[in-house]
Design a protein around this nucleic acid. Structure first.
Lengths: 238, 238
DNA sequence: CGATGCTTTGAACTTGCTCAACCCTTGTGG
DNA sequence: CCACAAGGGTTGAGCAAGTTCAAAGCATCG
C-alpha cells in the first residue's frame, strides 16, 4: 500500500522530534527509532488500527496521519475519546495479555511502525512513560472539556491542544499545522452536532481567533484564545 | 486523626480483595499489602490527597472512603474526572519526577496507605498494571458518558460503574453498597446541575431501577438498567 | 456532467439550565 | 427542650444552549 502523506525518508521525523523531546533520547536511541520507522506499516483512512476488546498484538508508534480512539454506542452514537497524532504510542500498556479498551480508527491514511523495545534504552523508557502520562492528561482534559465547557470553549480548547501537540512533534510552521478533519469528525470529538459545530467555528473565525481552511489550522490570536478560556495567556508546552 | 469508617483490623480488606483479584496475588503478597495497611494515613473529607501540578511524593492505595480526581476552572466551574474507591491506586505512574495531572480530593473521610514496592512480587506488578488499565478504562467511559449520553443514561451508567467497582472490591452486600455522595457531587461527576440531577434520579427511582437513600445505593433492576443503556443484559465483571 | 461528500443556512423544538423558593433533617446553643 | 441555623433535597417557571430536520450551496472527482 502506498503512502503519499510524507516522503519515506522523512517519515520518522515527527515521532523522533516528539519522543526525543519528552524522553531526552540520545543518538543511539534516535537511531533505533529511525530504524523502526524504516519499516513502516500503512493503514487506509477509516481502517481500524486497534479493535476494542481484542488482544493487543504489538506496540506501535504513529508516524504520520491522524487517528483517533473512538467509542460507538449500540444505537450508532459515536464519541471520539482522543486523537492519536504522529509520535504517539499505540497499544502500549504494561499488563500481560492486554485487551484494547478502545477502538482506534485511522482518520486519514496513516503510517506507523513497531515501537523499538526499550530494553537497554533509558531514554526510550522515559519517552514511553511520559507519552503514556501525556495521553492520560489528554483524556482528563477531554473530560473537563465535554463536562463543563460551552461549545465555543470546547472547540477552541481542543484546537489549542492540537496546536500544542503538533508543536511538540515539530509539525507547526508559521503557527499553522495540518488539520485534515471534517467538521463531522470534530463534532464527534467535541460531542456536538456538526450543525452546531459549524456555527461555532464560524464565530471563532469571525472573532479572529482561528483560521481553518484547506486542511490547515492556524491559531491567529493566542492571547485572545487563552483569555476566552480564562487561563493564563501563555501556556507552557511541557 | 481518628478513622471511624472501618475498624482498623478490616481496613485492608477491600484493597486486598480488589488487588488480589486483578493481580492474582499469592499469600506473601497479600501479607505485604496487609502490613502496609497496618500503617494507615487519614484524610478528612474535603482534604486534598494530591494537588495538580505538584510533584508526586509517594504511591498510595486507598483503603476506605471515597475520593475523586477533580478539575476546577478559573471561574469556579468544577468537573469530577473520576472516582477513587477502596483498592484504587493513587499517584502511580512510571515517569521519573512525575507531576500530578489532577487534584484528588477526599469526598468522605478517607484512609490510605503506602503502596508496597512491587519489586520481587510479580502479583503486585500485575495488580498495579491492571489497576492503571482499569483507571484508564474508567476515564474512557467517563468521556463517552459525558459526550453522548442523555442525563438519564449518564447517571444510570455511572451508577452501574460504581456498582461494578464496589463488587470487585467486595463491598457489595445484598446488591447494595455505600454511596455517601451528595447530589451536588454526583452532579459534578455527571456534568449536570444538581437540580436536573435530582429530577432524573427521581425518574430512575420511579422507574424502579435504583434505590438510593441513607447513603446506600442499590441497583434494583439490572436487566432493565442495561436495556435502558442499550447494552447486553449481563455485563462481565473483569 | 452527474455523483458524492462536505459545508452552510433556516426554523422549530427539546434538553437541561437558572433563579428562587420551600422543605426536611440534623446539630447546636440558649 | 425549644429555636434556629446549616446543609442537603425538592419543586416550579421561564430561559438558553444546542439539537433536529430539511434543504441548498459548493467543491472534487471520475
Amino acid at each position: 500500500m502506498k503512502l503519499a502523506i510524507v516522503a519515506p525518508a522523512r517519515l520518522a521525523e515527527a515521532a523522533v522530534a516528539r519522543l526525543s523531546k519528552i524522553g531526552r533520547l540520545d543518538a543511539q536511541e534516535v537511531e533505533a527509532l529511525r530504524a523502526a520507522a524504516d519499516q513502516p506499516r500503512g493503514y487506509r483512512a477509516r481502517g481500524e488500527l486497534v479493535i476494542e476488546g481484542q488482544p493487543i498484538r504489538r506496540r506501535e508508534i504513529l508516524l504520520s496521519g491522524w487517528a483517533a480512539r473512538t467509542r460507538v454506542f449500540p444505537d450508532g452514537r459515536r464519541q471520539l475519546l482522543s486523537f492519536v497524532l504522529p509520535g504517539d504510542l499505540i497499544g502500549h500498556c504494561e499488563q500481560e495479555g492486554p485487551i484494547a479498551t478502545s477502538t482506534i480508527i485511522a482518520i486519514t491514511d496513516v503510517a506507523s511502525c513497531v515501537a523499538p523495545d526499550e530494553g537497554g534504552y533509558p531514554g526510550l523508557v522515559r519517552a514511553y512513560a511520559m507519552s503514556r502520562a501525556l495521553d492520560e492528561a489528554h483524556l482528563l482534559s477531554q473530560i473537563a472539556r465535554l463536562g463543563r465547557m460551552t461549545a465555543y470553549e470546547c472547540i477552541l480548547d481542543l484546537m489549542l491542544e492540537l496546536y500544542e501537540r503538533h508543536m511538540l512533534a515539530g509539525l507547526v510552521s508559521n503557527g499553522e499545522f495540518e488539520c485534515p478533519l471534517t467538521q463531522d469528525v470534530l463534532a464527534d470529538a467535541t460531542a456536538l452536532t456538526s450543525v452546531h459545530l459549524n456555527r461555532m467555528v464560524q464565530v471563532l473565525r469571525r472573532n479572529g481567533l482561528v483560521r481553518w481552511q484547506q486542511g490547515q489550522l492556524k491559531v491567529l490570536d493566542h492571547t485572545a484564545a487563552c483569555q476566552a478560556l480564562g487561563r493564563p495567556p501563555v501556556r507552557v508546552t511541557i
